[in-house]
Design a protein around this nucleic acid. Sequence first.
DNA 1: GATCATATACCGACCAGTTGGTATCATCGC
DNA 2: GCGATGATACCAACTGGTCGGTATATGATC
Lengths: 206, 206
Amino acid sequence: MPTDSATTRERFLDAAIAVMRTKGFHATTVDDLCAAAGLSKGAFFHHFASKEDLAIAAADYWSVTTSRLFAGAGYHDLDDPADRVLGYLDLRASIIGDAIEAYTCLVGTMAQETYATHPAIRDACAASILGHAETLEDDIAAALRDAEPDATGVPARAESLARYTQIVLQGAFVVSKAMNDPDVARDSVAHLRHYFEMVFHRHQGT
Amino acid sequence: MPTDSATTRERFLDAAIAVMRTKGFHATTVDDLCAAAGLSKGAFFHHFASKEDLAIAAADYWSVTTSRLFAGAGYHDLDDPADRVLGYLDLRASIIGDAIEAYTCLVGTMAQETYATHPAIRDACAASILGHAETLEDDIAAALRDAEPDATGVPARAESLARYTQIVLQGAFVVSKAMNDPDVARDSVAHLRHYFEMVFHRHQGT
DNA sequence: GATCATATACCGACCAGTTGGTATCATCGC
DNA sequence: GCGATGATACCAACTGGTCGGTATATGATC
């Protein structure tokens, strides 16, 4: 959300999120970004050493803006850690609207197309995804301990489950882009929620 | 796997799978494909009207080669449909080796970067993914009926679960590319297998 | 007036696609 | 059988436009 008070640098970063989230890194030109930001190429290269440099900055900026969104969400106030995890998933599902470019993930898109050609971008994307996954780990671990008081290896499983949430979301984005259909993404979050319910012993079977 | 008996067209398609699977559609140049195929640009444009046309053909070719791989797999011979579904997942897990570009998915990669810019490629990718998902539906539906003889809406759930398998795999590819680590992909298939075990009532809880 | 921020004009490299041509091979009249 | 004909397969060189990045000019701020 660009605002009038945004710095020039932020205007470029907002533009990068808007355009690259839709078209990807390679299909987005620097001129595209300048047009979206309403600024010139000179300004662009004044603030960023290269297009790759911008992509790395955009991945970091993405982490900042998304973590602000989730940090302020209401599910953190719930008492039961399992409810907090399920609340996170419900929020993720509710974010999925009709416009694909409004709910998909910048860094997942960029990681996929740059992993072999631009390792520095890939690393920034990985840091963003893993950083977000980490914010779920404590609640997942606590919920696992509640469900299975004498379970072993809870921290490792919490980490694995936290990453799995991100994997399902990333996959949902890929397939809903391919099918041009948000329903398949919502559906996959429902499956993931069902999985967590069972892992947390909220359900038996069905 | 290019062979000496491959046609020129197939040599380009094999090259596309090898190069585009790694670098993606936009970062792959026609010259890259010609070099990989050991053929000239004239030959390329003799067989394909455009780079986009090649990508569509490559998506179809991908469907053909992968369906051959899975159609010949041993799990189809198992008696229990749930075992066949789990056998499919075990095969998927076993395919995941150390070389990322050897187990990730061409059409998932291409769908993500072309969905907004090249709808025709996106559609070919969607058809490939959905076609593969469909091959799982009958076994999933049969396993659901075995697990819950009076369940309703089994065909819809089977379709949804079949798509979910592909979503998890696509997400696993994205995140394992970002982290440059195949383990996270194997781990996610294990979660998916666990989910199916529970849905099929093979496990209760843990 | 010096520094920082932004704009405009420009450059060299690259890239999708074209062109004009050659090699190969099947078909067919003789 | 055999050369002429035409179609297909392929190649090397080229083109027109695009893109990342640079050079330089202009305005703002202190």
